[in-house]
Each structure stands twice: as structure tokens, then as C-alpha cells.
Design a protein around this nucleic acid. Sequence first.
DNA 1: GATGGTTGCTAAAGCGCTTTAGTCATGGAA
DNA 2: TTCCATGACTAAAGCGCTTTAGCAACCATC
Lengths: 337, 337
Amino acid sequence: MARPTIGDIAARAGVSIGAVSFALNGRAGVSEATRARILRVAEQMGWHPHSAARALSGAKTDMIGLVSARPARTLGVEPFFAQLVSGLQAGLSVQGVGLQLLIVEDIEAEVETYRKWRSANHVDGVVLFDLRADDPRIAELERSKLPAVVLGGAGPLASLPNVWVDDRAAMLRIVEYLAALGHHRIAHVAGLPEFWHTQRRIAALRDSASELDLVGATSTTTDFSDEQGAEVTRRLLARRPRPTAIVYDSDVMAVAGLGVAIEMGLSVPQDLSIVAFDDSVLARMMHPSLTALSRDTFALGELVAETMLSAVDGATGGVQAPMPELVVRESTGLPRD
Amino acid sequence: MARPTIGDIAARAGVSIGAVSFALNGRAGVSEATRARILRVAEQMGWHPHSAARALSGAKTDMIGLVSARPARTLGVEPFFAQLVSGLQAGLSVQGVGLQLLIVEDIEAEVETYRKWRSANHVDGVVLFDLRADDPRIAELERSKLPAVVLGGAGPLASLPNVWVDDRAAMLRIVEYLAALGHHRIAHVAGLPEFWHTQRRIAALRDSASELDLVGATSTTTDFSDEQGAEVTRRLLARRPRPTAIVYDSDVMAVAGLGVAIEMGLSVPQDLSIVAFDDSVLARMMHPSLTALSRDTFALGELVAETMLSAVDGATGGVQAPMPELVVRESTGLPRD
DNA sequence: GATGGTTGCTAAAGCGCTTTAGTCATGGAA
DNA sequence: TTCCATGACTAAAGCGCTTTAGCAACCATC
């Protein structure tokens, strides 16, 4: 049999199409008895909503959008992203909501996508990440009233619901740990300078360095690639005096940096301590294994999903993501001097 | 201004709505002069198709579906999957086609999803992977005429378009390489036994072992997790005589296996050679780095995207994916005896 | 000069659903 | 008794697009 429509249900239940719509959407306008009967018939006929028809008449789409302006190739390499997407999808699917993925060239194309999606009622909401200082997406989304959840915190900027990740506290945690071991010259291999979280981490290092009287604390930005991670490490380790510890903004860069250190004849952690700002199988399985700031990225994705679903229903305000935990492994130890 | 509809364009261009539709879809029914004029007006008014409206009237959706019945958590860990999805998305987006991701409980739910999508005209086609022997999805998709592309080859089973990956040749390549080094006792830590590609790899090892007179060739299936990879490795290395080489069906398991070997006091590659069937940053960055069968998974995703787009237009038949290349690194060498 | 076939276009139905305006009992208050 | 609210429901419009049927004008044909 062909897909049953609400018309079929209406006929079978002996009511009008409108009544069926009310019943199925839990809205006022039908008595409880009728509602129950309609639902029973719908169930029995195996009815499912037709998403396009719903979208066309302006109702919910049961679809969330995720668009990324990072280069597609690097996305596949980032365990963080893959984990996040999995968690997000898992969190959405408990409510039968789908995830639409899109990779675009640049942030303008991203904004343009939001505009199109909004006017075509294509998604119920979007998830934003990799926020930048003065991000054009924020303005667009606030203006257009497309529900959005910002991952990483929209901070002072915005009224958008967000999942707030406390990068500052996380960086402080790392620096305090290293300082307690006796490290003074701490280097930081950061990510893309335009990202807000990069800036927050850099500021956190600067502040805690001055507070703890660490003389040689420096941050260097990169594009998150293992190549740049390796190159910056090479430059840092050529300095005299050498840093005794390096903090990497991603696990991939940390692993690359470890490779460089070993290649340069340094032993880890005796000559150099290494900390990764992100954890993953990669960090866990290296030899020496990497001390890393570990968070459950999958769970973070689920949290974003939850926040998104309530944002669609009009909720606002932020949620604090759990503070990541510093997992001490083999790559950190007392400095030699 | 509100989103322009084809009605607005029609009014402005002084033609009927139908004419506009013909013009925008490149169909017969309007003269070239009129078509050009309509397109100009549309462009000028910033018109974009309304996907829901299109889908509702049975036309193309510009959306491809990818549903996975693997546990969500493991998906985030697999570099293969992330790379594939990125490549797929990149390949689709050149034609403005989106990707809808869905993670479901089991294969029945997956089939059910295809059925719903088909009847709601939700996607133009779907991508299938992790094919099993006697896969129920094949039957459903052939019956329902939902365009589908099978990754990994639909083999003799099916009429579906596919991107064929030659696991047999790949395994032969590895075994020949190891045999040439002088290895006889080759163990194979395989993936899930129900997957077709697992079965093909196991058969390939068995065949080539008998052909090359390798006495101790064995395959053991796992669930692809690093835990099981480690456990099986432990069991294999406890055997006497020990295998001199182990082939792992995924990079994650290979890394786990390497960890076990080192933990047991073996040196790689002197006491044990290790080959991974999949390459990734992980394999490249380990110490020792892993010899691996390397393919450009991102490009594979793009190839799948291309095949999908032509399948939507009615094309059929398979494409052979490029043969992966064996990248020899530090984890393989001559056996000690 | 009537016939038939194109070509270029319009009108209108229809896709499945939501939503607004309206109808008709029923019940309680005046 | 009359009047107005309220509750339960129906009818129908409308979302933006595709597609079929139809129509008029034009050309070539015998």
C-alpha cells in the first residue's frame, strides 16, 4: 500500500483532516476520546509524518544543521570533530531529529547557508563552533531568529544559547600542574589565532605565567596541522634556553611535536614534558603516552544536542560543559635542571 | 524583503509560473530568449529553490543520506569513517547536494529508515557500507528503487551501483610482502565476522597461505575495538611458536597490538612485524611507525559522491576504487629466525 | 485551403501538511 | 427564556513548487 496520509487517517477515523492534524500534534481542538482514536488509527496504518510537507507549511523540520568552514580534509583528521558529530547525532536521534552536515568554503558561505536555510525552513536550528572574535555568524543568527547553539561559549557577545567550555580554567589547570613539577619555561603551541578559544587559552597562559612568575612562557599560533605543529616545535627546541614543557592545543600537534623531540635526541619527559589540550586514542597509545586534558567529547556532543533541542523550543541561556580532567601519563615529569 | 518565490519571478518577468519552473529546471517548454530573461530575473531577485516544496512535488531533494548501524561511539574513533564522510560531503557539495547523517540502533532500523525516506522523498539516494553476507538492505533498496551506492562492492549479489574495493588483492599484497621478507607464521586480527570485507580478507589470507606454503597463517575476528585488538594480540603472542608477523584490519587495533607487544618485552620489528590494513595519522606517528596499507580515504569519499550523483541520474554499474598502496615503515622487517 | 504537427506558453491541479475562520451544539448565567 | 461563552469539530486556504492538459499561433504539407 502507498504511504498513508493524514487524509487516509481522517477517512478511516471518520473525522476531518484538521482534526487529525490537531490530534497528531497534541494541540487543542479535539476531545481526548477522539484524539486517542485518531492516534490508534494512525498507528495502525503505519503513518509517519512527511517531513517536506511539514516544512512547507512552516512547522518543525526535525532536522538540525551543522556547517563547517574548516577545510574538509582536516575535519576528517580531527578526532575531536568526529567524536562531537557522533555524540551530537546520537543525542538528536533519541528525539528522531536528523543531522544535516555541510562543509563550505568560508565563513561568508556559512552565513549565506544560514540565510537560505532560514528562509526555506530547512532546519529547526544550527550548531555553531570555532567561534571567532567578532563573528559575523552571531549577528546573522540573532537577526534571523534561527535557533542556534554555540559550542565553546558565545561569551559576552551574544544572547544565543550556548554550551560553555572553560578554556581558561583548563589552561590554568595545566600550567599549575607543570609549575608544581618545577617547570618555568613553558611553551604553548596554539591553534588558529582567529578562534576565540585560541585567544582565551593564550590569555590564560599569559595571566597565569605572570601570576606564578614563569619567565619563559610563550604562545605560538598555528593552523592546527601536524606539519605546523612539528615546525613550531623544532623552532622552540632550538632556542636556548630550551622550554622544559610544551602545551599543544590539539592531540595531533602534540604527537607531531613528540616525534620532533625524539628526532632531535631529546627524551620525554626527562628533557621535555608534553601536554595535549585534547585527548584521544592517539594520545593514549603513543609511547610515551601523552598527558592530556581529557574530556568526553562524545558526551559533549550529546550535551550540545540536548541544548539544541530545548533551544528549538525557545529555551535560552547557557550550559557549562563539565571541566575536562587532566590525565597524567608518561609524557610529563620533573624538569632536568 | 521576503524570500522571492517563482511566482514573484513570474510576475516580474511577465510570464506564468509554469514557464518559470521550466526555465529554472532547464526543461523544454520555453524559448531560449524567455529562458534567459527568466534566469536573469531570478538571479537578480536572489531566488533559491525551496527544498521542501521541491521534495513535496516529487522532484529532487539535493540530499543524500548516510545511515550507520555501528555504535555511535566507535564511529567517532574510526579515522576511516570521519575521512570518508568528509570526502563524501566535499564531493557532494560541489553540486550543492547535502548530506544527511543518521545513526541507528541496528540494521532493521536502518532498513526502516530507508523505507521512510523513500516514501517521504526525503533523499535522492543513500550510501551503504559495511555490507554483510546476505544483507537485508540490498533487497529493500532494490525493491524500493531508492538510488544507492554500495561502498566495498555489492559483489555478485546485486544490481546496485557500487564502489568496489579489492580487499583480496590488498591482502595478497601484504602477505606477499611479508612472505618475501621470510615470514611464515602470519596472524591476522580481523574485524567483525559478519562484514563481507572481513570475510574476503580472511579468505584471501587462507588462499595465499596455502599457495605460498605458509604453515601458521590464522585469522581471528574481533569487534574492531582496541580492547579486543589488544586481547587477541596477547593470546597470539603467547602461542609457541609465536607468529612473526601480525596483520591488523584497522589502524586502531594495530596500535593497540603494538602496545601489547612492547609491554610483553618484544621489539618491533625484530621480534614481530606489524602491518595495518588502514593508514592514518595514528599509524604514521607511532614509534615505531606502522607499515600500512594506505589509501586516500578522503578521495574514496569523493569517488563515492561522484558515483552517487550519477546513480541518482540513473547510472548503474560499479567503479573500481584505486588499489591501496603498501607503505613500508618501521614496524616490519626480517623475522629473527 | 483544410489538415496536422510543432512551438511557446498558460491555467490549474496536486504534493501532505498546518492553520485560520467558521459552524454548530451545549451549558451556564442573566 | 434569551444570550453569550465555550468546546469540538469542519471547511478551506495556503506553503512553493512540478507537471499535465490545454490553447493559440505558426509553419509545412498535400
